[in-house]
Design a protein around this nucleic acid. Sequence first.
DNA 1: GGGCCGAGCCAC
DNA 2: AAACGTGGCTCGGCCC
Length: 598
Amino acid sequence: METKVEVKYTFVQKDGDLQKIIPELESEPIIALDTEGSDLDPYKARLLLLQIAVKDKTYVIDCTKVDISPLKNLLEGERPLKIAQNSKFDYELLRVKANIKLGNLFDTMLAERILTCGVSREISLKTLAAKYLNMQIDKTIRDTFSDLSNPALRGNFSKGQLDYAARDVQVLLEIFSKQYKQLKDDELIETAKLEFAVVPVVSEMELYGSLIDKEKWSEHIKELKIKRDQINKEIQDQIRHLSPYSQVDLFGNVSDTVNLDSPIQLLEIFKKLGENLENTAESTLQKSTHELAKKLLEYRGYEKMITAFGQTILDKINPITGRLHPDFIQIGADTGRFACNNPNLQQIPADSGFRSCFVAKKGYKLITADYSQIELRIMAEVSEDNAFLEAFEKDLDLHSLTASQMFRVPLEKVDKDKRFQAKSINFGLMYGRGPASLANQIGLSVEESRKLLDVYFSSYKKVKRWLDVVGRQAVRYGSVRTLGGRKRVFIIPERNHPDYDKLISSIERQGKNTPIQGTSADITKHALVYIHRELEKRNLDAHLIHTVHDEIVVEARDDSTSEVMKIIEHKMIEAGEKLLKRVPVKVDIHISDCWEKG
DNA sequence: GGGCCGAGCCAC
DNA sequence: AAACGTGGCTCGGCCC
């Protein structure tokens, strides 16, 4: 039997009625809020409802009839605390439709992510209601708000819609109080405060978006397509006689029916050429001596560029703003890093013609800043290794220094090859990399690379000790923390698990990497908050548009660029020094008409 | 025709 | 024989 719970709320449909409830809301230390819009895109959407819940009352405000600007101070101010699920959505909708900038937020979705990093990604309101309130909620009516033929858009909401809207906001207060207790018990309040402070920054960043030079972008795609078609033709001509897929049409045209993107078809062709390949992975093809393999890799390079970064990205330009508004997922990775999609601006090829198509609008410049070797500096900080620390204190080239110690040669005798090998080890260690995988990259035997690692660790004893200890701790305690206090939990397998050893070593590697990668994320997030606040305080026409892990991009008006540059550098260093006490923090920064490496 | 998954490959 | 951390996107291929 299903029990029906009557949803109680006040439906506010007149400006005068809103005025009556404001004093009451102002006296509350905590409120929950939610909004309903007609579209996920805040620029396209209509703001339909604003729901506010306090201890024992719920208000559903009809935004198609009521002017909500009297709530501006309440919603923007420090008091009351505002509880919301996925507050970025509400922030953006209220910002665009009512010029309200939500302040002092507690986001139940982010809180849940913080509490369960590593064990779960279930953070929907439905999940939270079930987990904390043992309540089953139905979200299907949500879709009716976006239905254009729906009477709601003419200002008539159904009882079902209003009940739904009220229920969604009512559940938040209790979820909040349970999550808050858990955050305190797990010593995650600092992390939560940071994440909640990031919400307005990310929201503004998404809303501002970034500009693409469409003509230049299309031109670049065109060039890539010509190259791809050329190499495709060469391959097809070469293998046509082997293909069981080729077809000749009525006019005698032979179609290119070997699908170069299909591993199954390719393996068959290779078989006929006398090569039995395991798979068509990049590493396998690199080992093949056949010309087809070489050409295939070349083809794939172009194909990847065209499909992943070609027209699809242009299609995502917002018709209203003419800019790209990607979705930044604030806690995308279990380490605390951002993820990004629609489109993923964090994977635009670094050394291609695409990045330079991201431009500043007329009269503005792009300022690109990134932390110099932040992860290695974090490793120096946490390991307290003297050689590492000294290298950064003296601002030496760590990779060359490492090479000089490993190969027992003076610094000036370190060549490119030795530096590359040292660099591979320095980076590899942060990923928990072993001799076998290292050997593969630097072209040595496993035995040779094992010896190299031994020499390495004899120079950096404390690095080895730290890696060993933190790897063991991850398994023993089932969690690790970053310097910011962020926590990642690991599910430790039972002893009799068939893949026990494999799983354990994977956890060890994650345990080594997470404090490094996650601390870097902590630092970048602090920097975003500091920069945003300072730019706002000084009322500068400069806006964060982008972040890629250790990099921050700002679009700034021409006349403010030198001031903005100083702010960015200063605030990034301040953020770094908040968590790194033993190592200096360095930022590389430059100004340009487009997004590019300095 | 949508959902899911692995392969392959882009980023840091 | 392999044993590299964190993501997202596109494709082929399979399932319902």
